[in-house]
């Protein structure tokens, strides 16, 4: 159980929920979240937007029943968080890192950029964030000590400097991640992608979230959600 500290409407259907969960997590991991008792049946997989030792936050978009309930919750109410689950993004040793996020797929990149900076004050960190419409979601990223490029509308992958990208970490629609992977190929960048699949258990038990990879089937919730680009975009 965690208690909601704040649940802010950022506009365009997006909310930022801060909870008092102190549990350690690594960037790119997620929680199975539920803000209700028995119904709806399943918990919702939501990435960790931020963890600072004292709080854990989530950036989410209202798309259906579960996220709708979350959006109506207020300060002081309890949410159940199972996790953190998944592998998360690896630590990047290269000097330059480019993070590319599309829509709500930007969520895990905040914590990721923050941790990268913490580990290496000199690293060149670039974030490319693409949103469909204007909202306050982009603002949440502004305080990061990194170069933040935000675009509304169009394809964010059109704005990336692939030649000088260094290692690429990306999360968002599969087509966006695939484009980033393809376009970075000539420069032989290492690319990590965060996959999204429907999940029931989150712990690796149900095989509902299987992701086809070059090395055979993998569980997105356990061996993922972060995979190397070439592992999943091999066909």
């Amino acid at each position: 159980m965690a208690v909601i500290i704040e649940n802010k409407n950022l506009g365009d259907g997006m909310f930022l929920m801060k909870t008092d969960c102190t549990k350690k997590s690594t960037p790119g991991q997620f929680y199975m979240v539920r803000g209700w008792d028995r119904y709806p049946l399943l918990s919702r997989p939501i990435s960790i937007f931020d963890w600072d030792g004292m709080t854990t936050s989530f950036l989410y978009r209202v798309v259906g029943e579960g996220t709708e309930i979350l959006s109506k919750m207020t300060k002081g109410m309890e949410v159940t968080l199972h996790g953190p689950y998944g592998n998360g993004f690896p630590d990047i040793l290269e000097d330059t890192v480019t993070l590319i996020g599309g829509g709500i797929g930007t969520a895990p990149l905040y914590h990721t950029a923050k941790e990268l900076r913490k580990r290496d004050p000199k690293k060149n960190i670039k974030l490319y964030l693409g949103f469909e419409n204007k909202s306050d979601a982009a603002k949440a990223f502004e305080e990061l000590d990194a170069q933040v490029i935000v675009r509304c509308g169009g394809y964010i992958t059109d704005h990336v400097d692939y030649e000088n990208a260094g290692t690429i970490l990306t999360c968002g629609p599969e087509i966006m991640m695939k484009t980033a992977y393809e376009r970075s190929k000539p420069y032989e960048s290492k690319v990590y992608v965060s996959m999204e699949k429907r999940m029931a258990c989150g712990v690796g038990a149900c095989l509902g979230c299987t992701c086809k990879t070059e090395g055979g089937n993998k569980r997105t919730c356990k061996e993922g959600p972060v995979f190397e680009g070439g592992e999943v975009f091999f066909e």
Partner: peptide, 23 residues
């Protein structure tokens, strides 16, 4: 067995449809 392609889980009111396909 590799299991089934496509969507494998679908939530219904208080239920769950699955098509794992014995992976």
């Amino acid at each position: 067995k590799q299991g089934n392609e496509g969507i494998r889980l679908w939530e219904t009111p208080s239920g769950l449809l699955n098509s794992i396909g014995l992976e």
